[in-house]
Deep mutational scan, measured.
Amino acid sequence: MFYPNSPQTSPQLTQIPYGQQYAMMQRQIQQPYHPFATTEPQARLYPYHYQGPIQQEQGGFITQQSTAASPQYVQMRVTPVDQSIMSGYPNQTANGSSSSSFNYNIHPQQQQQQQQQQQQLRHHAMPVGSVPLQDDRYRKQLIVNYLAPDVTSTDLHELFSRFGELDGARIIYDKQTNMSKGYGFVYFCHAEDAKEAVERMSGYEFHGKWLKVGYSTNPLNIVPSNSSPYVHAGSRGAAG
């Protein structure tokens, strides 16, 4: 039997160049792979992502010199942007860049009308829970959420009447099932009393439920100042 490094198959040491006398086997001759043993700084910083320098080929596509990437890492192929796409944008300079302001050559009167329309939209648009300043009635009506099913309009009136005089209180019921929808409205005579009720009743436990109280901004629920107070009856038909 002959071994790869046996004296019968191995040459004389004098015939082997210096430095390879003890590297006779194939696994010894093959050098191990060192990912950080390279002179390129990109490979030292990113050993798993770097795959060699990027070269520009004919046709405008950018390719990489090395083989496919590892399945664990996804390499994105980048193509140059066609400058003709950006030619339609206004205020574009000769080098292809555009300024931040756009001039669509709008007539001054049209621009003024658009600004007025935007101001009107901001004036009428009102986020949930906010209180408008032009109508004091919005500051007097509250919406009470997360009410228990057994709470009546009379219970709601008695709960909030300790903060001040009320114009009314009612629970909203479903017309088909005649069941409470879980929320109601309270109408105060003074805005200061309503503000105190919002601050003190939010998070209050009532009939096993934690109440959420806020201003009601729905104009359909506003009680006119010259109208008669609501009837605080315990029956659902009268309260709904």
Rank of each mutant, 00 (worst) to 15 (best):
Phe2Ala: 12
Phe2Met: 15
Phe2Lys: 15
Phe2Tyr: 06
Pro4Cys: 02
Pro4Gln: 11
Asn5Arg: 14
Ser6His: 11
Gln8Val: 12
Thr9Tyr: 04
Ser10Ile: 06
Pro11Ile: 03
Thr14His: 07
Gln15Ile: 02
Pro17Gln: 10
Tyr18Gly: 14
Gly19Pro: 10
Gln20His: 14
Gln21Cys: 04
Gln21Ser: 07
Ala23Trp: 03
Met24Val: 15
Met24His: 12
Met25Cys: 13
Arg27Lys: 12
Gln28Val: 03
Gln30Glu: 07
Pro32Val: 04
Tyr33Val: 11
His34Phe: 03
His34Ser: 13
Pro35Trp: 09
Pro35Phe: 03
Phe36Gln: 15
Thr39Gln: 14
Thr39Asp: 12
Glu40Asn: 13
Glu40Ala: 09
Glu40Thr: 10
Pro41Cys: 05
Pro41Tyr: 09
Ala43Lys: 15
Arg44Asp: 03
Leu45Met: 12
Tyr46Glu: 13
Tyr46Gly: 13
Tyr46Ile: 04
Tyr46Asp: 14
Pro47Glu: 05
His49Phe: 03
His49Tyr: 09
Gln51Ser: 11
Pro53Phe: 04
Pro53Leu: 08
Ile54Gly: 09
Ile54Leu: 09
Gln55Arg: 13
Glu57Ile: 10
Glu57Ser: 09
Glu57Ala: 13
Gln58Ile: 04
Gln58Met: 08
Gly59Lys: 15
Gly59Trp: 02
Ile62Gly: 14
Thr63Arg: 14
Thr63Asp: 12
Thr67Ser: 07
Ala68Tyr: 04
Ala68Trp: 03
Ala68Phe: 11
Ala69Thr: 11
Ala69Gln: 07
Ala69Leu: 10
Gln72Val: 02
Tyr73Cys: 13
Tyr73Trp: 05
Gln75Ile: 00
Met76Val: 04
Met76Leu: 04
Arg77Phe: 01
Val78Arg: 15
Val78Pro: 11
Val78Asn: 15
Thr79Glu: 06
Pro80Phe: 04
Pro80Ala: 07
Pro80Trp: 02
Asp82Cys: 12
Gln83Tyr: 07
Gln83Ser: 09
Ser84Lys: 15
Ile85Ser: 11
Ile85Tyr: 09
Met86Phe: 05
Gly88Val: 05
Gly88Pro: 09
Pro90His: 12
Gln92Arg: 13
Gly96Val: 09
Ser97Asn: 07
Ser98Glu: 08
Ser99Met: 13
Ser100Arg: 11
Ser101Cys: 04
Ser101Trp: 04
Asn103Tyr: 04
Asn103Ser: 05
Tyr104His: 12
Tyr104Gln: 10
Asn105Arg: 09
His107Trp: 11
Pro108Asn: 13
Pro108Gly: 12
Gln109Ser: 08
Gln111Ile: 11
Gln111Trp: 09
Gln111Asn: 13
Gln112Ser: 08
Gln112Pro: 08
Gln112Glu: 06
Gln113Ser: 07
Gln113Asp: 05
Gln114Arg: 13
Gln115Gly: 08
Gln116Lys: 08
Gln119Met: 12
Gln120Thr: 05
Leu121Asn: 09
Leu121His: 10
His123Gln: 10
His123Leu: 07
His123Met: 06
His124Asn: 12
Ala125Asn: 10
Met126Ala: 10
Val128Gly: 09
Val128Cys: 12
Val128Gln: 06
Ser130Gly: 08
Val131Glu: 05
Val131Trp: 14
Pro132His: 13
Gln134Arg: 14
Asp136Leu: 08
Asp136Val: 06
Arg137Thr: 03
Tyr138Asn: 02
Tyr138Gln: 02
Tyr138Ile: 02
Tyr138Phe: 05
Lys140Ile: 01
Lys140Asn: 02
Lys140Arg: 08
Val144Ile: 14
Val144Gln: 01
Tyr146Gly: 01
Pro149Gln: 07
Asp150Asn: 13
Val151Glu: 00
Thr152Lys: 07
Glu158Cys: 15
Gly164Tyr: 02
Glu165Val: 13
Glu165Phe: 15
Glu165Asn: 14
Ala169Phe: 02
Ile171Val: 05
Ile172Met: 02
Lys175Gly: 11
Gln176Arg: 10
Thr177Ser: 07
Met179Asp: 03
Ser180Met: 05
Lys181Ser: 02
Gly184Ile: 01
Val186Tyr: 01
Val186Leu: 03
Tyr187Thr: 01
Tyr187Ile: 01
Tyr187Phe: 01
Phe188Gly: 00
Cys189Asp: 03
Cys189His: 14
His190Met: 10
His190Ala: 13
Glu192Met: 05
Glu192Leu: 05
Glu192Val: 08
Glu196Leu: 14
Met201Val: 07
Ser202Trp: 12
Tyr204Gly: 03
Tyr204Ser: 11
His207Asn: 13
Lys209Asn: 02
Lys209Thr: 02
Lys212His: 11
Val213Lys: 00
Gly214Ala: 04
Gly214Thr: 06
Tyr215His: 03
Tyr215Lys: 01
Thr217Ile: 07
Asn218Val: 00
Pro219Gly: 01
Leu220Ala: 05
Asn221His: 13
Asn221Thr: 10
Val223Ser: 03
Val223Tyr: 04
Pro224Ala: 04
Ser225Arg: 10
Ser225Asp: 05
Asn226His: 10
Asn226Ile: 04
Tyr230Ile: 06
Val231Met: 09
Val231Phe: 14
Val231Tyr: 14
His232Ile: 09
His232Arg: 08
His232Thr: 09
Ser235Asp: 10
Ala238Arg: 09
Gly240Asp: 07
Gly240Gln: 04
